[in-house]
Simulated assay, not measured.
Amino acid sequence: MSSSVQIIVDDFDPRITYTPSDKWTTGGVELEHNSTTHGFNDGAGSFAFNFNGTGISIYTTVPPFERETPPGVVCKIDGTEIERFTPTGAAYNFLACRSPTLDADKDHLLEVEVTRMAAWPTFHLDYMIYESVVGDNTKGAEGSRLVGPEGESVRIMVDEADGRVVYGGPEGAWRDGGVDAEHNGTTHVTDTGGATATYTFFGTGIQVYGTLVEETSSKSPFIATFQIDDSPPVIYTSPSIKGLQYRRRFFRSPVLEENVEHKLVIMDTTEGAGRFIL
């Protein structure tokens, strides 16, 4: 039996070809995936990526701009233009292009053409997410793991609404939420002490992301713990921010033993504090 997984591709993935290579610059800040981006500064350039999957989305960082026109972007799959979106302001994790459903039985070529005049904001590629169909033998048995470039492991996206994530704690502790800017437009939200989320998996590492929101002055920060197997819990205390920050990393595990099932337990330890949003 097969299933679909979402695989994240960082801008530094060696399978991405940047042209011309000398006009693409590297950068990045904490709010970007792996704190890295590839930026294009002037003229006409492109990047290409070959993959086997049923769909792909391209995410960028949009720097502040006022009257300047954002860089011209054209995205193509196998030579055919796909849906693209125009930013209305500065943003991280901006969905620049999205493909329709693709044939799962063939390889596809993504080509993104960027045109930027000197006065326009820089184009920054942050990451891509593509969907791929895999069999059940990817659960962790030796020799059956998903592999990426040069045999390296790949990073699989697991949405918080995935049925394998088990929510617990006091009755009614979690409620559904979500907006378009959040992954798959869904979230789970709690401000209840003792609320838990448990996920078991095979892999060599795991990271947890969520949304941070500006709270009223009467709300204290939420404090969450993240525990892998029998390791001591790692504590995360939410910072004070202005506005909203999407896809903020809350936790990153150390390297874990391969071919062994691991369990991650997340707990909100504060009652009535700021919202904890997965």
Rank of each mutant, 00 (worst) to 15 (best):
G178S: 04
P20C: 03
N52L: 05
S99V: 07
V158W: 06
E32K: 08
N34L: 12
D10G: 14
H124Y: 14
T196A: 09
D10K: 06
A104C: 03
P71V: 06
A104W: 00
V213M: 12
V5Q: 12
R116I: 11
F85P: 00
S218A: 05
V29G: 13
E111P: 00
T186W: 01
E152F: 07
I235H: 00
P63C: 08
Y59V: 00
I228R: 06
V158S: 05
F222V: 04
M157R: 05
D11K: 03
A90F: 07
E66M: 08
L109P: 00
Q6T: 11
S46N: 13
T88W: 07
P170Q: 11
G177Y: 04
P221S: 12
I235M: 08
A173T: 05
W174P: 01
F222N: 05
E171M: 05
E271V: 03
T86P: 00
S2T: 12
F49Q: 01
R84M: 10
I241N: 08
I223C: 05
F49G: 02
V114E: 05
T60M: 00
P63Y: 07
P63K: 07
D107G: 15
V112W: 07
V189Q: 10
G72H: 09
A224S: 14
V133C: 04
P239M: 04
F250A: 07
E171P: 02
E261K: 13
F12N: 12
D107W: 01
G193R: 04
F94R: 04
R164P: 00
S240E: 13
G203K: 06
S231K: 10
H33E: 12
D230C: 01
T88C: 01
H188S: 11
T25K: 14
E68C: 04
S132W: 00
Y59L: 10
P221A: 12
G178K: 01
G135Y: 07
G148F: 08
P232W: 07
P87K: 04
P233S: 10
T36L: 13
Y18E: 07
G143P: 02
G163I: 10
V165K: 02
N93P: 00
D11T: 14
P121K: 03
G151A: 09
R116V: 14
D13N: 15
I58E: 04
S3W: 09
G177M: 03
P64T: 08
L212T: 06
L31N: 11
S218D: 10
V62F: 06
S231E: 15
E30G: 04
V255L: 15
E142G: 02
D10L: 01
I82L: 12
